[in-house]
Nucleic acid binder design. Structure first.
Lengths: 181, 181
DNA sequence: CTCCTGAACGAACGATCGTTAGTGTCTAAG
DNA sequence: CTTAGACACTAACGATCGTTCGTTCAGGAG
């Protein structure tokens, strides 16, 4: 609920009064449930972190690297489309977290991105991807597409198909067969 | 100057007092130069729009599509690294623009992204890229990497080399030569 | 029934917000 | 020398901010 307004108007652009009105309640009443506005931001961030990690957990370990990347992209985009508000807070509004909570977010995100990077690194090391693959750049490219998705993904989109289209390009590239190097 | 604080703390997280202090001036004094806080956001957005378009203008028309995409990515990342604050406002803070100015931004961005998409569409139609290329998805992938860059690009990075690394992956893909389809 | 607890209320708090107004000072053109 | 304009100052405006307070009320436990 709070995530929706934070995603819509930004953390600093959303007042306690706005949140209270959205809940049909006086603003003072909110403090029976929270200690501060920061709490609401923190809760939304936690929800996002759990959703993204849970989605990654559904990717089987015993598939080739390419398949795992494709499924990881599917999983990520699904979270964005199904929990757009929470995903938006996780990707964009987290930076208004203060103190330890900002550090906690950064650790959470680092862990998430590292799980992604591992797909590429392991895939190359096992010979399932190009032996000359720049795994850092490749991971960054995919993570960029994933992290930017909240800006354009419509709420009910077919994210599986979209992820597959991204992956097809990523897998084989855009160069024409007959194009000279 | 205003762009720096907007990028750092967000538009709503930056007060007129903050801006005045950064300029070594009393906050009332700012109103000899602007009409409202919105003006500063608008100016930063305009600066960003001009920088990105000017960068795209440096890409020659008479190169193969692949080269133009590579150079466009170079140009974009260079703007992000060299004008990080303004780029951040253009990519993230624009949404706090009100009224006509929000619409103006959207038109500006649509135009920019369309120039990018044209590289892919024309490249495929001319046979310089894969004939079965999903140009919409490919453009979205590159634009995502471009638009996300402000979150991780260090200020003095070698963006040309980075752009080339991205392009190498985009051009030939990540799949191993011996990997079965 | 009484008691306790959780939740909501309405009013108020001090702080800060963006903005305006009136005044003073410096500079450069007439 | 006078004047106009640009720019900075201080002070204050009404509005809104996040938060606290004392109170009321409903419902379940004893």
């Amino acid at each position: 609920m709070a995530a929706r307004l934070f995603a819509e108007r930004g953390y600093h652009g959303t007042s306690i009064g706005d949140l209270a009105k959205a809940l049909g309640v006086q603003k003072g009443s909110l403090y029976a449930h929270i200690e501060s506005k920061q709490d609401l931001l923190y809760e939304a961030m936690r929800e996002g972190a759990e959703a993204f990690h849970a989605a990654l957990d559904t990717v089987p370990d015993d598939l080739p690297a390419g398949e795992r990347i494709r499924l990881a992209l599917r999983a990520h985009l699904r979270v964005v489309a199904e929990q757009l508000d929470v995903a938006t807070v996780f990707v964009r509004e987290w930076r208004y977290l203060e103190g330890d909570r900002a550090a906690e977010f950064l650790a959470e995100r680092r862990r998430y991105e590292e799980r992604f990077r591992a797909f590429f690194r392991e895939g190359r090391d096992r010979g399932e991807l190009r032996s000359d693959l720049d795994d850092q750049a490749a991971a960054l490219l995919v993570l960029s597409a994933a992290n930017w998705a909240y800006t354009w993904l419509p709420a009910g989109a077919d994210t599986d198909e979209l992820a597959d289209r991204f992956y097809a390009i990523l897998a084989d590239g855009i160069r024409g067969y007959a194009t000279p190097r």
